[in-house]
Every structure is written in C-alpha cells, then in structure tokens.
Design a protein around this nucleic acid. Structure first.
Length: 120
DNA sequence: TAGGTGACGCGGT
DNA sequence: CACCGCGCCACCT
C-alpha cells in the first residue's frame, strides 16, 4: 500500500472550484488517522518537487489555508483559490459549507477500486 | 534507539 | 471567535 501514491491520486481528483481537507484526503486514502502525513507528503514529496498537483485546494478542517510558504509567496495559495472562484476571507479561511468537496459513497468506492487496480 | 517535528483533528474552555 | 491540550504517526536527526 503506497501511501503517497494514494494521496497523489485523490488530490488529483479534487474538483476545480472546491476545497478538500487533509483529514478528508486521509479518509479517502483509507488512512483516517494520517491527516498529518497528508500535509507532510504535499510539502515534502510533491509541491517542492514541482509537481502539478492541485495542492492549493487542500486546507485544514477549519477551512484555513496553510501557513507554510510552500507555494512561494504568503498569499500564493489564496490567489490560486480565488482564480477558480473560491472565496478566501481576511483570516485566510475558506467557507467549507460553500466550497467544500462533498464526497459521496461512490467516491470512496471508486478510489478504493482504483487503489486496488493500481496496486497502491 | 529515543526523541523531536509538523501544510492535522477534535474536544474543551 | 481564539487558544490550549492531547492524540496521532511517518520522517527525520
């Protein structure tokens, strides 16, 4: 089971114009207790290595953007989100009620099947 | 091997 | 709201 490959697959499927949480990604990856590792992975495995993962669509459970400057400037993530219609308030927060990614049972099943298919 | 770290989450105050 | 404490776990020293 390749932890990082799963994260990559799920993050790549976060719909344009929506934001997902670290815990949500972890859950869909079948690792409900590993939200921290999702953040670690995005910062250390993908973003810094220049991948094209839409990592800016991942925020914490309160809808708050990452404080770490992994996107370049402090407000780069904010700009990326706003560019696709996601509103970010003064406190660097996204309203998950409006822009959060709503997962269905089918989403979970599809990801599970994909992990199986690719052996990850 | 032991301990510190962190793009986290949740419940309490 | 904010702030705190605790639980969590792969990765580094």
């Amino acid at each position: 089971m390749d932890f990082y490959k799963r994260i990559e697959l799920v993050v790549n499927h976060i719909p344009y114009g929506t934001a997902a949480t670290y815990g949500q990604i972890a859950l869909l990856c079948g690792m409900p207790k590993n939200a921290r590792q999702v953040g670690y992975a995005l910062g250390h495995r993908y973003e810094v290595s220049g991948s094209k993962l839409p990592a800016h669509r991942v925020v914490n459970a309160q809808g708050r953007l990452s404080g770490a400057m992994s996107f370049g400037a402090w407000d780069t993530q904010k700009k990326l989100l706003e560019a696709e219609g996601i509103e970010v308030d003064e406190g660097m927060r996204v309203d998950l009620k409006r822009f959060g990614w709503r997962n269905t049972l089918d989403d979970a099943l599809w990801f599970r099947a994909s992990f199986e298919k690719y052996g990850i």
